[in-house]
Write a protein that binds this DNA or RNA. Sequence first.
DNA 1: CTGAAAGCGCTTACAG
DNA 2: CTGAAAGCGCTTACAG
Lengths: 366, 366
Amino acid sequence: MAIERQRRRSSQSVTIRDVAAHVGVSPMTVSRVINRESNVKPETRELVHAAIRALNYAPSPAARSLAGSIPCRIGLLYDNPSTGYLSELLLGALDESSRTGAQVLVERCGESEMAAAALGKLLKAGIDGLILTPPLCESDRVLAEVQHAGVVAIAVAPGYASERLATIRIDNEAAARDLTEYLLSLGHRRFGCIKGHPNHTGSQQRADGFLSALAAAGIAPDTVRMEQGYYTYRSGLQAAQRLLADEPYPTAIFAANDDMAAAAVSLAHRMGFEVPQDLSIAGFDDTPIAASVWPALTTIHQPVAAMARAAVDLVLEEVHRQREGTGAPRQLLHPHTLIVRESTGPAPLPDDGGSHAGAIAPGDRL
Amino acid sequence: MAIERQRRRSSQSVTIRDVAAHVGVSPMTVSRVINRESNVKPETRELVHAAIRALNYAPSPAARSLAGSIPCRIGLLYDNPSTGYLSELLLGALDESSRTGAQVLVERCGESEMAAAALGKLLKAGIDGLILTPPLCESDRVLAEVQHAGVVAIAVAPGYASERLATIRIDNEAAARDLTEYLLSLGHRRFGCIKGHPNHTGSQQRADGFLSALAAAGIAPDTVRMEQGYYTYRSGLQAAQRLLADEPYPTAIFAANDDMAAAAVSLAHRMGFEVPQDLSIAGFDDTPIAASVWPALTTIHQPVAAMARAAVDLVLEEVHRQREGTGAPRQLLHPHTLIVRESTGPAPLPDDGGSHAGAIAPGDRL
DNA sequence: CTGAAAGCGCTTACAG
DNA sequence: CTGAAAGCGCTTACAG
C-alpha cells in the first residue's frame, strides 16, 4: 500500500474539472465554452452554462493568465464628472468581471490630451480590450490612438451606434421625448432646457428628443429657452440662472442630467421658487443624487450597472471576434425608464405666475 | 529522431528557473529567498539576490497565487455610503488589487439582516479575506458571522482601533478638532452641529472633537445646538431645519459629512441665509460633492482611495499573519487634511444678525 | 540548509 | 465537435 502524501488544500472550491464532471465532458470543452469558442455543440454549450451557474463556478484569473494568452485584462477609461454614474459603472463592471474571471483596470483621463498617457499605462499593463465612456469614445483623436495601439475598444453610452466600435447605449432621443411628453401631460407650456456637454453626442439627442416632443405638441420653438450646460453641478447652476433671469419664467425645466437638475433645484430655491409648485424640474440618468436631493428628481433611468456588466461581456466577445475577423461590431440598446418623483408637478395656474417669492418658513415639513 | 511538438511561447521572459540556473541552485532556493524564508544560507541568499538584480527578474503574480496559498480573492462588503465615498473606495481597491494580482468581489448589504446573505455569497465565491466598512465593521452581529465563517476581516474607516480586527482609519476626533479650531479662528462663537449616524463609532468621535475644541475655547456647551443626522442628504436637511428653527441662529454649522453639509447649505439658501456671509457650513470626508456644490464646502479630507489601497494590502497581510498565528492585528492611521473652500468665512458682525432675508438677485455671479 | 516531485487551474497544440 | 497530453511559473509537502 503506497503512502500518499497529503493533498494540498486547493485554494478554489469549484474548478473547471468540477464543471466538466458535472456535465460529463472534458475540461477542454468547458474551457472552450468559457472562452466563447465557436466549435462547441450548442446543446453541450447550454449544458456547460447551466453547470457553471449551478455550481457557481468562476474561472481563476491566475490560472488563465498563467496558462494562456487568453484575454482577461480589460481597461476602463473614463472621464466623467458625475460620481454617482461612476460608482454604478464600476460596480457593474466589477461584478461581471469577477463572474467571467476578467480583471478590470480603471484609469481616469481628465483631458483629451491625457488620453495618450492613460492609454499608455493601460497598454503597459497588458490589457486585451478597452471600455470607453463618453466623451472619450466619441473623440476621433482617442479612437485613432486606440486603433494605432491595436487594442479592441467598445463604447458605453455613446449617442449613436457606430460602424467602427461595438456600442452599448440607450435611446436618448426617445427617452427625452418620453420625459417631455410627461411634462406636457402635466399642462406645462413654457419650457426651459439645460443642454448637456456639446462634446457628448448623447447631449444633442437629448435636446432633439425634448424639442421634437414640444414640436409635436405645437409649442413654438422660439418660446423655448435653451441654455448650454456641461453636465456639472456648477454649469447647471449657471444655466439655471440664465433660464430664470427674466419673465416670463418657464414652468418646467428639462436638464440633460441629474447633477444639473439638482443644481437648478437649488438655484430655484434660492430665488424663492417652490419646486414643483412654481417650477417643475426634471433630470436624466437616475444617478444616486436624483433620489437623495429634496425634492427627489423626476428623471430617466439609464441602467448604467447593467450596461457596464454588458460592456465587460461585449469587450471580451469583441476581442474574440476581431481575432477571428468575422462579423461586424455589435450594437446593443438597453431600455430606459421614466421615473416620476417629486420635482415635477402640474403647471401652475397663469395667475400664480408672480407668487414665487416665499422662502420656506421654519416650521415647514420637508 | 523524435518529432517534438512546438514549444508554446512563454509569456514571461525571465523565470525563477533562469535565476536558479544562473546561481547554480534549485528553483526552490530562489523561491525561499523571494519569500523571505529564514532557512537559506546567507551567502546563497546574497548570490540569489545578485542574480535577481542581474537578470532583472520579477516573480509572476499569477503563478504565485495559483501555486501557493497566496490569497487572491478579497471580498468588499459595504452598506450605504454616499456614492462619492463608494466610488473612491472602489477605485482605490481596484487599483491595488490589480497591482498585487488579487481579485476584489464587491457586495452590498442593505440591512444588517442582509449581511448573512451577502457574506454567504462572498464565501461561496471562495474569498480569502474580507474588507468591511462602517457600520458593518462595528456590528457585533456581523463580526460574529464573519468569525463563525472563519474569514479574515479588516475594517476600513471605523472609529476606533480594535483588538480583534486590523483597522485603517483617520483620527476623527483630531480632524474634527482641527476643523472646529479653524471655525473658531474665523471668529465664530455660536455653533450648530449635525451629528453622524449613531451606529458609526466615528460619528461620536467627530462630535467629541468638535465639542472638545469648543470647550478649549471657552464656549459653553449649552449654547451649542446638536442635532442628530444619519449621513444622508435628507437627514441633513431635517437636522438643518431644526438647527435654524429659531433665533439666535448659529453662525457656523459643523456637519459630520459632506452630504449633510450640502443639504444644510441648500436649506440655508432656501431660508434666505447667504453662505458664508450669514452662515458658515463645514462638512467632513471631502467626497466629490464637497467640491461640486456651490459654494464649495470647507471640509476634512479623508484619503479614502489611499485607505482602500492600503486595505487590500492589509487584508492580504492579515490572512498571512493569521495562518502563522503570530503578532496582533495591525492598526493603521492615515493622515487627514483640512480643506478650506468657500462655504466658510468670517463670523458676521452682531448687528448683521437679522439681514439674512435676501434671496439672490438674477444678476448675481455664481 | 537544500532539492526532487507533484500539483495549483487553466490553456496551447496537437490528434482524432 | 471533442479530448489526452504537456506545460505556464511558481509553491507545498515532503525527504534528505
